[in-house]
C-alpha cells in the first residue's frame, strides 16, 4: 500500500484556468488567421492562374480570315482548346445591354476567338501573335498577362500583409503567455524558496514548473487550434450553402500548410509557456543565495 503524494506544485484552478483561457484564445486567433490568410492566398493564386489560362483573339477581317486564324490558333503549341465565338455567343454576351430582342442584323460584330492555354504553358500569347502575323492576319491577342501580373502583385501584397498580421499576433501571443506564466509563478515563490532552502537543485525546481506549463500550453494550444479549425470549416460551410462565389475560398481539404499551422501552434504555445516558466524560475532563483 502506497500513499498517493500530492504534486509539489499545487493545482491552482482559478489562476491556471485564466492562463489556460489566454493561451487557448491566442492560439485560436493565431491559428485562425493563419488558416484564413493561407486560404485567401491559395484562392487568389488559383484564381489568377485560371485567368492567366484564358486568351482572346480579335480578328479584323472576313469570316474566312477568322476560320484561317482559328486553324492557326488550334495548331499553336500550348493551346489546349480554341473556338470562334459566333453570333449566338455574341448575342448572349450583349444581351444585358441590348435586351432580349437580339442584335440588329446590320450591326457589325467583331470576330472573336476564345482560346485556353494548356495548364502550365507559358508564352502562348507571344507565339500566337507571331504565328498570326506570319499568316498576315490582322489580329490582336489579349492574353491577360499584363492584367494578371497586376492581380498577382496585389495578391502577393495581401499575402504579405496577412503574414505580417499572423507574425504580429504570434509575437503578441508569445509575450502574453510569457507574462501570464510569469505572474502565475510569482504567486508560488514560497514553494520555490522552500524547495531551494531544502536543498533542491535549480534544475529540479525549474523542472517542476516547466513540466506543468508545457502541459498547460500544449493542451490550451491544441484546444485553440481545434476551435480555429472548427471556425474555418464552419465559415466555409456557410459560404458554400449560400452559393456564393466559391472561388474566393479554397476547397475544404487540409493542405500540408493547414496541418502545419494547426499542429505547430499548440507546440509553440507549449514551448513558449515552458520557456517562460524556466526563465522566471531561474531568475527568481538567481535572486536567492
Amino acid at each position: 500500500m502506497s500513499r498517493h503524494l500530492a504534486p509539489l506544485l499545487p493545482r491552482e484552478d482559478a489562476r491556471e484556468a485564466a492562463l489556460f483561457f489566454v493561451v487557448c484564445a491566442l492560439c485560436f486567433l493565431a491559428a485562425f488567421s493563419g488558416l484564413v490568410s493561407r486560404a485567401a492566398y491559395a484562392a487568389a493564386g488559383a484564381w489568377t492562374s485560371e485567368v492567366t489560362g484564358q486568351l482572346t483573339i480579335r480578328v479584323r477581317g472576313s469570316d474566312a480570315d477568322t476560320a484561317r486564324a482559328l486553324a492557326i490558333v488550334q495548331a499553336t503549341p500550348g493551346v489546349a482548346a480554341a473556338r470562334a465565338l459566333d453570333r449566338a455567343d455574341a448575342e448572349e454576351l450583349l444581351q444585358p445591354w441590348l435586351g432580349a430582342g437580339g442584335i440588329p442584323a446590320d450591326l457589325p460584330l467583331p470576330h472573336l476567338i476564345a482560346a485556353e492555354a494548356a495548364p502550365g504553358a507559358t508564352g502562348v500569347g507571344d507565339r500566337l501573335t507571331a504565328a498570326l502575323q506570319r499568316a498576315e492576319l490582322k489580329t490582336t491577342v489579349d492574353d491577360h498577362v499584363v492584367w494578371s501580373a497586376d492581380a498577382r502583385r496585389a495578391t502577393d501584397t495581401i499575402g504579405l500583409i496577412a503574414l505580417s498580421a499572423v507574425a504580429l499576433l504570434g509575437a503578441t501571443g508569445i509575450a502574453v503567455i510569457a507574462f501570464a506564466t510569469h505572474a502565475t509563478l510569482l504567486a508560488r515563490r514560497d514553494i520555490v524558496e522552500l524547495l531551494h532552502l531544502t536543498g533542491a537543485k535549480d534544475s529540479f525546481i525549474a523542472g517542476l514548473f516547466e513540466r506543468r506549463f508545457l502541459m498547460l500550453g500544449v493542451q490550451a494550444g491544441a484546444l485553440g487550434a481545434l476551435f480555429a479549425f472548427g471556425a474555418a470549416a464552419f465559415i466555409l460551410f456557410a459560404v458554400r450553402q449560400g452559393d456564393a462565389q466559391t472561388w474566393l475560398l479554397p476547397q475544404l481539404s487540409l493542405s500540408l500548410a493547414d496541418g502545419l499551422i494547426l499542429g505547430l501552434s499548440p507546440l509553440i504555445a507549449g514551448a513558449v509557456s515552458m520557456l517562460a516558466a524556466k526563465v522566471t524560475v531561474m531568475r527568481s532563483l538567481s535572486d536567492m543565495v
Partner: peptide
C-alpha cells in the same frame, strides 16, 4: 506548504 498534508510536508526533503 499549505497544499500538502502534514505527512507530505514532513516527507518533502526526502522527495527532494
Amino acid at each position: 506548504l499549505d497544499h500538502l498534508s502534514a505527512y507530505e510536508n514532513v516527507a518533502l526533503p526526502l522527495r527532494v
